[in-house]
Amino acid sequence: GLTEEQKQEIREAFDLFDTDGSGTIDAKELKVAMRALGFEPKKEEIKKMISEIDKDGSGTIDFEEFLTMMTA
């Protein structure tokens, strides 16, 4: 499992990506986040990433899903 410290770091990354503070990361926010990390993702790639992570089919990534992605 994760230490509380690791969870906190992932939470901070999540909050950075969640620019509108909605508690979820949408495609637009993910794209901005990827760019910040030096990637140039295409729209299809973003969609694919979200569909792989987005277990509940909401079209957005919540913290639990993000946590799973970061620790996979």
Rank of each mutant, 00 (worst) to 15 (best):
F66G: 00
F17T: 03
E5C: 14
I53Y: 15
T60F: 06
D26E: 07
A27R: 08
E9T: 13
I61Q: 00
I46G: 02
I10F: 12
S58G: 06
G38M: 03
M49L: 11
M34K: 00
F17N: 03
E12G: 09
I25S: 00
M70Y: 12
G1L: 09
M49V: 05
K28G: 08
E45C: 15
E65V: 10
I25F: 02
E40D: 14
L37S: 02
L67E: 01
K55E: 05
K28P: 03
K42V: 09
F17C: 11
D15V: 09
D54H: 09
R11T: 01
A27P: 06
T60E: 09
M69R: 04
G38F: 02
T68E: 08
Q8D: 04
T3H: 04
M69W: 15
S51G: 07
E45H: 11
R35P: 00
I50N: 02
M70I: 10
E9S: 13
K31W: 15
R35M: 09
G1N: 08
V32D: 14
E29Y: 14
D15P: 01
T3D: 04
D54R: 05
K42H: 11
E65Y: 10
E64H: 08
I50V: 07
M49N: 02
D54T: 12
A27S: 08
G59P: 04
F17R: 03
L37C: 15
I25T: 01
I25K: 00
I10V: 05
L30K: 00
E9D: 08
I25L: 14
R35N: 05
T19M: 10
E52D: 10
F17I: 14
K7A: 08
E29M: 14
D15Q: 13
A13C: 14
A36N: 06
D26F: 09
K28F: 10
E29G: 10
F66W: 06
K43I: 14
E52L: 14
R35C: 13
G23T: 02
S58L: 08
E44A: 08
E52R: 13
T3M: 04
L2A: 04
L30I: 09
K55T: 08
R35G: 05
L16Y: 12
I25G: 00
I53K: 04
E29D: 14
L67N: 01
T68C: 10
D26W: 09
E29P: 00
T19W: 10
E29N: 13
R11G: 01
D26I: 02
K31R: 14
D18R: 07
K28S: 11
I50S: 02
L37D: 01
A13I: 14
R11L: 03
I46P: 01
F17H: 04
E5R: 12
L37W: 05
D20S: 05
K28Q: 10
A27Y: 11
T68P: 00
A72F: 14
G23I: 01
Q8S: 07
D62R: 11
V32N: 15
G57I: 07
T24V: 06
E4I: 09
E5F: 12
K55A: 06
L37V: 04
T60Q: 10
D62A: 07
D56L: 10
L30Q: 00
T24Y: 12
D26Q: 08
Q6V: 06
L67F: 07
G59H: 06
G23P: 01
K7L: 13
K42N: 14
E29L: 14
G1H: 13
T24G: 05
M70V: 13
G38W: 02
Q6G: 04
I46R: 01
E65W: 12
L16W: 10
A33S: 01
K55M: 08
D26T: 11
F39G: 01
T3Y: 04
L67R: 02
K31I: 15
L67T: 02
M34I: 05
G23H: 04
A13L: 15
G59N: 04
K7F: 12
E5V: 09
I25V: 03
F63S: 01
L16H: 05
T24Q: 07
T24H: 07
D56P: 04
E52C: 15
E40K: 15
V32H: 15
T68R: 12
T68F: 12
E64A: 10
L67W: 09
L37A: 05
E5K: 12
D15G: 05
T71L: 13
L16I: 07
T24I: 05
E52A: 12
G38E: 01
T68M: 12
M69F: 15
E4A: 12
E29F: 14
K31Y: 15
E12L: 14
G23M: 03
K48T: 06
G1A: 09
L2N: 03
D26P: 10
E45P: 03
K48D: 06
D54E: 09
G57E: 10
E5I: 12
E65G: 11
K47V: 09
E65T: 15
M69P: 00
S22E: 02
E40V: 11
Q6C: 14
A13H: 05
S58T: 10
D62K: 09
R35Q: 11
K42C: 14
E5L: 09
A13K: 10
K28E: 13
G21F: 04
E44V: 06
K28V: 06
K48F: 05
G57A: 07
